[in-house]
Every structure is written in C-alpha cells, then in structure tokens.
C-alpha cells in the first residue's frame, strides 16, 4: 500500500533521513520507534509531502507520488494526525470533523450551501465520531473539551478524510495511562483495511497494536521485524529500549 525506496533528506550537513526503504501492506499496523532526533517526524513529513526528498521515492498503491504536493497526496489517501493538536479551536467537535469530511466529499468549495448539512458529510461525521469515540461531545467546542478528547479528535479529523493510509504522530502524546489504554481500543476498532503508520513512545501500546516494528536511529532503518523480535533485539535495547526497561 505504502512504500518508500531509498528515501533521503538532509538539512545542510545533517542527514536526517538516510536511504529509508519500508513497505507497508494494506491494512498493516506499523509502529515506528526511535530515540529523539532519529528522524521519525521528518519521515512523516516526507511521506505527507510537507518536505521534498533529496532522493528516493514514495509510492502509494504502486504509484509514484514523490512529486505530489501535500493536498494532492491527501486526496490520494494519505492522512495524518499530529503530535501537537492542530484543531480548529473556536469550532465544535462536529464542525472540526465536518471540515475534513467536506474536503473528502467535494463540498469544501461549495457556494451558498452549508457543507455540514450535506448527507455524505453528515454520514462521515457520525461514522468517525463513533470510531473516535466522540459521540458524546459532538456539539461541544474544542477549547472546552479535555486534552484526551482533543487527542481523539486529532485522530478523528484525520479519519474524516477517509484515508487509505493514516500517519499518526504520537497519538497518545501527553495523555495519562488510562487514556492511553483507551487509545489502544480506539486503534483496534479502526477498519482493518486501513493502513496505519504510527510513531509512538508508549512501548506497551506500540507492542500491542503493531503488526511490525521499524526502528530508526540517526535517520536510518536499524531494525525491522515483528514485535516479539523487537523485544529481544540487543541493538534495540542499546539504542532505545534500555532507557525504557530501566525506567
């Protein structure tokens, strides 16, 4: 479904992504691990089109999308949620989801017609609200809901574009253990044909949801394999998991 071939990116003399080649199958749940500065978010930016790669390719469903800008990649089916909330604060939860759903439904430039009242948009909003567990707060304003709900909405907004691939940058960032467990249920409830690529620091969540794990260090892929293999990897313990196990 999503593939990178020898993807590289440098900022001046610093190589932030080095020859990264990964391949995700349709419906796969892949977790990206790596210490701070490993190039995880840069990889997401390269996949989403926010950054242009110096070399290498990004392929979606076999088609080269390397040269496509952000919006066109999104319309092809790549959506993302951010580590920091990028929600529309003055609007309600429903309106936030509606903005995303309207783009997907082709209602975002409709004149003299409220996109939120379009049947396709309403249907998507209801469906995503159920998936992201936001039904109870649909009419609340974003700046009036708890942080945990905002994190759920961050994922919900990305889901409302009905993506084929969802890039999730630390979805549980800043939430407590109870909410993190709730996120596990949320991720488990997502459609099985949706491909997920997740950056996550919560190891328990990572190992529970991942079909496969990729570890980045200094911009390079240093490990790729099953979660069980990741747990037993000495290299991983050395560069990343040591600090987790000793914590």
């Amino acid at each position: 479904m999503l593939e990178t071939r020898n993807l590289s990116k440098s900022f001046g003399p610093i190589h932030v992504t080095r020859d990264v080649s990964i391949r995700l199958e349709r419906g796969e749940r892949r977790v990206i691990l790596g210490p701070n500065g490993a190039g995880k978010t840069t990889l997401f930016n390269l996949l989403a089109g926010v950054l242009q790669a110096d070399s290498g390719q990004v392929l979606l469903a076999g088609k080269d999308i390397t040269a496509l800008p952000v919006a066109r990649r999104a319309r092809r089916g790549i959506s993302r949620s951010y580590q920091k909330n990028t929600l529309f604060d003055g609007l309600s939860v429903r309106e936030n989801l509606g903005l995303a759903a309207a783009v997907q439904a082709g209602q975002a430039r409709r004149l003299f017609h409220d996109s939120l009242s379009h049947p396709k948009v309403r249907e998507t909003v209801e469906e995503v609200a159920h998936l992201a567990r936001l039904e109870q707060v649909l009419d609340a304003r974003v700046n009036e809901v708890s942080y945990g709900i905002r994190r759920q909405l961050e994922v919900g907004v990305a889901l409302a574009t009905r993506p084929q691939v969802l890039l999730m940058d630390e979805p549980t960032s800043g939430v407590g253990p109870e909410m993190a467990a709730g996120f596990h249920d949320l991720l488990s409830g997502l459609p099985r044909d949706l491909t997920l690529l997740i950056i996550e620091h919560d190891m328990d969540l990572a190992f529970e949801v991942a079909d496969k794990i990729t570890v980045l260090n200094y911009g390079e892929v240093v490990f790729e394999g099953l979660p069980e293999a990741a747990r037993g990897s000495d290299l991983l313990k050395e560069i990343y998991l040591g600090s987790w196990e000793n914590a």
Binding site: L91, V157, T161
Partner: peptide, 11 residues
C-alpha cells in the same frame, strides 16, 4: 485557523 492543516486534509 491553520492553513497547513487544511492542506493536509486535501484542500
């Protein structure tokens, strides 16, 4: 609110 976010949604 956020031009970058709207672009990431495909707009």
């Amino acid at each position: 609110h956020s031009e970058e976010r709207m672009r990431a949604l495909g707009l």
